[in-house]
Every structure is written in C-alpha cells, then in structure tokens.
Amino acid sequence: MMSHEEIKSLILNYSPEAVCDESGPWLQVSIQSTDWLPLAEALRNHSQLQFDYLFCLTGVDWKTHLSVVYHLTSKVFGHTVVVKVKIDDRINPVVETVSNIWRTAELHEREAYDLFGIRFNSHPDLRRLFLTDEWVGWPLRKDYEDPINMIKL
C-alpha cells in the first residue's frame, strides 16, 4: 500500500494544479473539471496506482458552484483516494464522463444528472433515473423550489 505522499506526488505529476488535503483518513484531491479526464485515466491505468474500483460518486451543491466527488479504491493495492471535481458553471454544469473507465459510473452519473442537473459529456445514456422523464428542475439543488410540497425555510 502506498503512502499518501507517494500517491500525492504521482497525482501532481499528472495535474500540477491539484490541491491535496491530508486531514482526513483518505487523501483528498481537489481539481477543476477540465483537468478531470486525464487524471481519471491516469488513476485507473498507472501501474502503481491502479484505482480499479469507483465505490462512491456524489454530487454536491455549494451554492456558488457544484462539485462531483469520486471515491476510488484499488483492489490490487488497497489504497483509497477521494477526488473532488469542481464545476464553476452552475447554469450549465458539464464534466467529462468516467463511465468508460469505471462502468459503475454509468448509473451513478445518471443519478447525479437526475438530482443535480450535472451533465456528463459522452455518457452513453444520460437520462432521468429516479424521477419521471418530464420532471422539471433538479431537486437536490439548494435553490430548488416546490411550492406545493415544500415549505420554504
């Protein structure tokens, strides 16, 4: 198993802009959405990293921007990393899909699209997942309004 420092130095080789945070149990890497795809391929394919398992994909609404959080682990080495991808454009949030790298992302990205409206470029089947096709709006956004069912706090 690699130490945080070793993973960090390898990641910084691929995306020097990345900001690393080692305060938690796992190494957290924050990057911009434009840097995500090359880093994702490196994390999956680098012989010393081999993050072959995406075990959690989360969307977050920070009010000023959106982000997608990827939890990756390697079943070969047992190390784990958290990648936080920042999307600045809240009106038209787009990030590259990783469903071709980790197949499980296909459903998780659909969920993030369904509830946060984050569009994943080149996703094979980006449709609503839980909500109906004709649904308007993105319910887990902080500014979502539903005057019939929800009380405005």
Binding site: P139, Y144, D146, N149, M150, I151, L153
Partner: peptide, 8 residues
C-alpha cells in the same frame, strides 16, 4: 416531510 417526493 419537507420534500418534493413524499406523499403527506
């Protein structure tokens, strides 16, 4: 209760 998805 304060959700878009739940029948009250």
């Amino acid at each position: 209760y304060n959700t878009y998805s739940v029948v009250k």
